[in-house]
Write a protein that binds this DNA or RNA. Structure first.
Lengths: 227, 227
DNA sequence: GAATCGTTTCGGGATGGCCCGAACTATGCA
DNA sequence: TGCATAGTTCGGGCCATCCCGAAACGATTC
């Protein structure tokens, strides 16, 4: 027999600035090593290790051992969802240094959000998908169906989109994070688009951050699709 | 210029067991006084006051002064959403005492969840609304439209449901909390149903908790609608 | 096997949070 | 005016957490 959920457990784990930075970095989907996370959180290796232990204990992250590295990732999409929902009510950090200013600009331009793209790039793609009839109008938190029959037009071919995979996962989901004030496309279609951008080299990762850079090829493709 | 949201701020505020209990109680929508919250969290008045100060500072709760009472409530529905999403990843409390056991059973049977009903009662109502064609099938986090034209059948009249009020708020939203493993109806329709249950005396509040009790009248109504 | 690299564990110091009782303020009521 | 009630502020004790450097550990490399 068990009672109510103890939200203090995950909340406490997320409630330290260093651990919050780590989690925010891990929202960028790919697994990060203890060392990378330590650099992101600006901590000594020993402190980093302790914080990661706390996160694992609270069930927020999982570890993959690979050689002498240990790669950490968010435990599941519910954790990602919880972090997003906290971002919606969290105050925005004050920016003091020039370095932070640049990092903030890069995040606004384009970044990954768990397994899809966000920032200005995410919004451009959302508009494109909507104009192309591949997704419905998005409302925050809403889920949408794929069009029937599945189109085979220019946009679909250019991005290499495939039909939904039949899993329970919704085709689109409106995901709001703190820039833009408009939801961007998450869900299966969002994941497909991010995968396409990665494998085709339309974006390149930036070091130690979820921000990504749109390459010249990527920008060309977008402009061509938007015209 | 401002940077990323600092999720550590709300998370830290929620990350104390006493404050978490208060927030969980406030999920029951109605505002609670400092004294009531102190009893719920089992704290001295002075500690209660400090904790509430922390919650207010983090923007999670708002205060209404009424005479010598101070009534606290969740700041907005985003906060409620964040608490719900943490409940989805939080471990369930172990139950030791008989008293906790009874409280847990009462919560499972029927409780309020921000501004709608949850627990077994919430699920019964969700099924009823679905069978009556008033809401679509629910998926967690999904939003649904009201039927057009708005029906005027037995269920609608019995519950006194009105058409959507034209606000942005979705007609239905699938809200999952920890019992039942199935989403129950939130959104405008959920709020209307709770209001009807309250004003018609189909439920009565239980002291110091979000749990409510279905009255004999309420049970009669439900059985009649379900037949 | 020795050196190296990434990571964890341990010890210890500083800090801050949590708790309470006592004193204080503000409201309501007689 | 005086007293009771609701709530906050203050002071102080205690404990958990957060940080780091030193040392240990395990895997890879030479």
């Amino acid at each position: 027999m068990s009672g109510e959920p103890e939200i203090a457990v995950p909340a406490r784990a997320m409630g330290d600035p260093a651990r919050a930075r780590m989690l925010s970095a891990l929202l960028g989907e790919r697994a990060l090593s203890s060392g990378e996370l330590g650099r992101i959180a600006r901590l000594s290796p020993s402190s980093t290790s302790e914080h990661l232990h706390v996160l694992a204990e609270a069930g927020l992250v999982l570890v993959d051992n690979q050689g002498r590295h240990r790669f950490y990732r968010l435990a599941n999409s519910d954790v990602a969802r919880a972090i997003e929902s906290l971002q919606a009510i969290a105050p925005l950090a004050r920016i003091s240094s020039l370095r932070q200013h640049r990092a903030s600009r890069e995040m606004r331009e384009a970044r990954t959000c768990y397994d899809h793209l966000a920032g200005d790039l995410g919004l451009r793609l959302t508009d494109l998908l909507h104009q192309g009839g591949i997704i419905d109008e998005l409302v925050v938190g809403s889920v949408g169906q794929a069009p029937e029959p599945f189109p085979d037009d220019h946009i679909v071919r250019a991005l290499g989109l495939r039909e939904p995979d039949g899993s329970r996962r919704p085709w689109t989901r409106g995901c709001l994070d703190w820039t833009g004030r408009r939801p961007h496309a998450a869900g299966q279609v969002g994941a497909q688009v991010l995968a396409a951008f990665r494998t085709n080299g339309w974006i390149t990762p930036r070091p130690d951050t979820r921000a990504v850079q749109l390459t010249a090829t990527g920008e060309h493709l977008l402009q061509e699709l938007e015209s």
